[in-house]
Amino acid sequence: MSVDICTFVRQATGAKTAAKRQAIQRLWSGYGEIARYALTGGVYDSVVVKHVQLPEGKAVGDLSHQRKVRSYQVETVWYDRWAGRCNGVCRVAHGLACADFGGEVVMVLEDLDAAGYSRRRRRVSECDIVACLRWLAEFHVNFLGEAPEGLWPIGSYWHLDTRLDEWLVLDDPPLKRAAAAIDRALKASPYQTLIHGDAKLDNFCFADHGVGVAAVDFQYVGGGPGIKDVAYFIDSCLPPDACERRETELLDVYFAELRRSLHTHGKSAKAEALITDWRALYPVAWTDFHRFLKGWSPGHWPRDSYSERTASRVIRQLIPEVGYGPIRE
């Protein structure tokens, strides 16, 4: 380790001592770790440190490597410039210090466990789902119309511009041909905001008391219509049959929270047009993620599955001449 993490943590927090207490998790593909550090003599008793170390031997031209490197640069910008604008409804960790030490990136963050958000979920209750949808609605309204300066121009880790490798190997001619039209439809929404970009269940921390949540992992935060986060979140926490059965119900919950947040932020004049636009884009956003999954992990996607039938409808809507076989309801 070339970086003196403990010294950096002490400087960032004003603590007298800092010591690594617990390795929380390794970063994807061996790019470092997230760890908890215990402190004494300062404001905080503990902090979380995200320490990014680029693996040796990665080719400079490797698209996956370039994407990961850029994602950590984006995350430092998020905590430096943007995170402080989130409120208690769309709670995030406070960024205490971020630095790039010649390729090693270190982020010192508020410990959300110590702040009262220590619970994680493998299975969700109705209250959990509503809490996460409320967080997303508040986040999207909070940054509505903002230009994603320093962040990804297009948020989410699966968008077409950065996933050409997966598109090239996609063995689904109609979906492959429609991919650009799907991407254009999402980019063309007049209601752009910041999206989390990886709003899966694993990235939400639930409050010890009450129903609040906080979110982590902002490597892919950037511009886009908020409905992209909603589609991805629902897909992350429910099985396909429940996603289909509860689609209208869950979208109604999200849009009710969105309408409430728009009113709170003095943006109610945009409510109906925004909701109409994003509701219509929900199947498009779902199909966009499905396009990535089919290229990344082909597996077996039955033609009568929810995702395949959704893709069929979207393709017929956007470019009817492509076709997609019969739709089985």
Rank of each mutant, 00 (worst) to 15 (best):
Y72M: 06
D172A: 10
T13D: 07
V124S: 14
G222T: 11
V211C: 15
P148T: 02
E166N: 13
L281Y: 12
L63Q: 11
L54F: 10
H159I: 01
V141L: 03
F233D: 12
V89K: 13
G212A: 14
F8G: 15
A185T: 11
Y31T: 09
G210C: 03
G224P: 02
E104S: 07
A199V: 02
G103A: 06
E166K: 10
E126D: 14
D217Q: 01
G30F: 04
S29N: 15
L250D: 06
V60A: 13
A181M: 07
Y157M: 09
P320K: 07
A12P: 06
V9T: 07
V130W: 08
S261L: 05
G224K: 00
A97Y: 01
E146W: 08
A35L: 02
C205V: 00
C132N: 05
D165I: 01
A215L: 10
P173K: 03
D304S: 14
G155W: 00
T310I: 14
D208C: 09
P239T: 06
Q192R: 15
Q317E: 14
A115R: 04
H265C: 09
N203A: 05
T276S: 15
S268V: 08
S297I: 04
D229L: 01
R81A: 15
A97M: 04
F233I: 06
R81I: 01
S2G: 14
E75V: 02
R177C: 13
E149Y: 09
W28P: 10
G323Q: 03
Y31K: 07
Y254V: 00
D241A: 13
P320V: 03
V253G: 08
F218T: 06
V211R: 13
